[in-house]
Structure formats: C-alpha cells, structure tokens
Design a protein around this nucleic acid. Structure first.
Lengths: 125, 125, 125, 125
DNA sequence: TTTT
DNA sequence: TTTT
C-alpha cells in the first residue's frame, strides 16, 4: 500500500534529542503548517503536525534547527494506540520522517555549550 | 506551506454518509494501509488512518465502495483539538481528502434498499 | 489513477507571463531541485524540472518571484508529444502546478517598470 | 530541496530486465496514468510516464508484473540531457522509483521459461 | 477500535 | 504544548 507525506512548515520549539533504551537517537517535533487559503472568517489557519525523526535525521535537526526554522519533511503517517493510566485507549497519529530538508534562508548553527558532549557524533550534516 | 498526503489502502468498514447542520455531505472513513516491510518479528504492520471526505467525494465513496475496497486518497493532514466532557483537551489528526480514486478491480456497485432515498443525488460517478 | 508531485527548488530565471490565444495567463518555469545526497564524485547534482503554471498561480509567481526564488509546487506530471518540422516525434514531460508557495525568506516584490501594464491584475497575492 | 512523486497506473508493456555494465539490474517501464477528469471533448486523457526501477525493485516488477498490471510508484523526478548523433541536445525526464507496490487484485506470477536462469535471485518478493 |  |  502507499503512504506518502510531504510537509513544509516551521518548528514550534527548539528540537531536543532523546535516546531510546537501545541507544537510538530520536527527536519528536511539531511542525506548524499554515494553510494556503482563508477560512470563512478570513483567517489563515494552521495545522500542528507531530513528527518523529530518527538517528542522523534527528541529530542534524537538533544541531541545525531551532524554534521557527522552516523545514521540509517527507515520510509516512503512523498510527498507534496505548492504554493510559485510567485504562482508556489513546490513539496517536504522527508522521515518521524519511528525510528532512532545512529550508530557512540562514539556518545559523546553534551554539550550545553542551555541544561537545553530544551523545552521538553528528557526521553527515 | 506544503501539506500533501497520498494514501492507498482498504476501507475498514462500509462507509456511511452524514449530513452536517448546513446540509453538506460528509463521510468519515478509516483506511488500513499495510506497510511495505516487516518489523523485527517478521510481521507486516498496518496503519489505520482516519480520513474525512466531503460532498461528491463522500457521496461517490459511499455509493461505490464498501468494507475492503482499495481506494487511493490525496489530501492534507488536518489537526484540531477540543475539550471532552471531563474538560480534558483531546487532539485529533485526520486526512482531509481532495480526491479519491477507486482502485479495487471490481468495485461492484452496492445494492442498498435505501438508495433511492439518498439525501443528495450522486451525479459525477 | 494517482499522479501527485511535490517539488521545492529555485527558479532558474525570472518568470515571464504569456497569454494564450483564448486569453489565459500561463508561465513556463524551470525549477532547479538539488538532490539530497552526493554522487560517486562527491558532488550534489541538480534536476531541472519544467513546470507549467496557469492563471492566478502564473500571475502571482511572475509578480512575486524572480531568478533564484525558492518556491514549492504541488501538481501532476503531464506528458505530451508533437512532431517537429523534420517530422520527428518529440516527447515532452512537465509538471502542471495546482498550487505554488513562495518559500524564500524575503520574496521582495519586483519593481518592473512595465508592472502597471500587466495584462491581468494580480488579486489574491 | 524536495522532489517527491507518487504514481498509480498501468504498465504499458511487459517489463524487461536489463543489466548495466557494472552488473546492476534495471528496468525501464512506462506507466499509463489516466486523469481524474474529462477534457473539453469529454474524454479522459492519459499521461504516459517513463519510470526507472533499480535492483530488487526492477527484479520483482519483472517477475510479478506484466502489461496492464496496476502498480504504485513513489520516487523522484530526474532530468538529464545528452547529445544525439546529429549533435542536437536531447532532454530526458523520468521518475526514478524508491518503491513499487503491486496493486492489481490478482498479480498472478508470470511463468517464463527462462525464470530459473534469472541473473539475480529475487529474494524479498 | 479496524482491512486483505 | 504551538510557528512567522
């Protein structure tokens, strides 16, 4: 079957790197994607799409992007469900990225003091 | 910004037409989209993606498709939130269709007894 | 059937508006889309994709973009063929845009002297 | 930059496997993708999109598909040019596949006599 | 609260 | 929990 997504939008926050139990780098970000048309009140609405980035893609995004950076993501929609502490079933939908492109004109590299201690070296760029 | 989705999958149920307060036809369907690779247990997982179809697209899908029909959808990811009766904020993500294609080899027309009473005639096909 | 394209790239030239015989505005542009990986020589190659924009989409692109502007296009691949003056069949492939987004950080409006004489007013923006 | 294509259409011919000089399997196919609307003469037109498949993707397509099979392709548009024997520059556009899905209801395996001699075993499926 |  |  086919499941293909392309998004261009702005990061709603500075992205943060997490490490899973088995040592894999991951970043969960939200993309603010404004619509191309106005609603009945003349406003431009925005969709806030949750995205999951893995490995190098996560590391590079954390290193080179921050709140407000425009990025392009290609990937697929993923759904899953879990039971919360009240025993209620919660459904989650997000976009798992295959690829991320940095589209802001000047994605100035962030200068974070902890940079040299980053858990995984950032190779590629 | 850009927000573009393409899905091909199977309807998990017979689609049903609803009519909004202002008289617009709408259908909420779930597409079962199996992945193209096996997980670490050797299984093929499936994403269940909620989709919203409007007007003719809704009407035609209800008329020509049923549980198990393979359809292709192009559209965009939409997010919204509301407060449930407990005052908890609920986040909802679905795909709003621009276009639907019927891809099953023999999408035999359904013979439903209530067909002649359908609230809106199904034109296009 | 499904035919869906998303491109983000730079205009290779200042776009120009043409008017067809029946009075429709059209612009033919080429998008330079650099690839996300290096070839065996360590170089980043670029695809030069021909795109056709119609009506308001053409007019707005001509008004707000110039050589080098980053734009996003969604649309479909179109193929056609014709015989050239030597009787040889020529095959042409381009992308017909449904939608164009201006993604350069500062798409400063062009100040062209002939602006006030533009054949069709540019509404929307 | 972003360059993302999704196509669903029918193979215009039985696909054939070729082997490049360095031993890589490749198949060049054309997808007939009918449009979702009628032109001014009430006809449904069709785009014939050239696609290039590599390695396992090529091998599986050759093994499991034939003329008329409906397949889904995700990939990117690729452009290149060369000079023909008359010194004229020829521009070529095709879609390089990342992924291929077989969507015909009954993609019966082809029984070709040369099957056991296939240059590269077809694993995956 | 899932399709083949 | 939202970006410009």
């Amino acid at each position: 079957m086919i499941n293909q997504v392309t998004l261009v939008g702005r990061l709603t926050k500075d992205p943060e790197l997490k490490i899973t139990q088995d040592g894999t780098a991951v970043a969960n970000v939200t993309l603010a994607v404004s619509r191309n048309y106005r609603n009945s009140n003349g406003e431009i609405e925005t969709d806030f799409v949750q995205c999951t980035l893995w490995r190098k893609t996560a590391e590079n995004t954390v290193q080179y992007c921050r709140k407000g950076t425009i990025i392009g993501i290609t990937g697929r929609i993923q759904t899953r469900s879990y039971e919360n502490h009240e025993g209620r079933k919660i459904y989650v939908t997000d976009v798992v990225a295959d690829n991320v492109r940095f589209l802001s004109s000047k994605p100035q590299e962030k200068e974070k003091e902890e940079k040299s201690e980053k858990p995984i070296a950032a190779g590629q760029a």
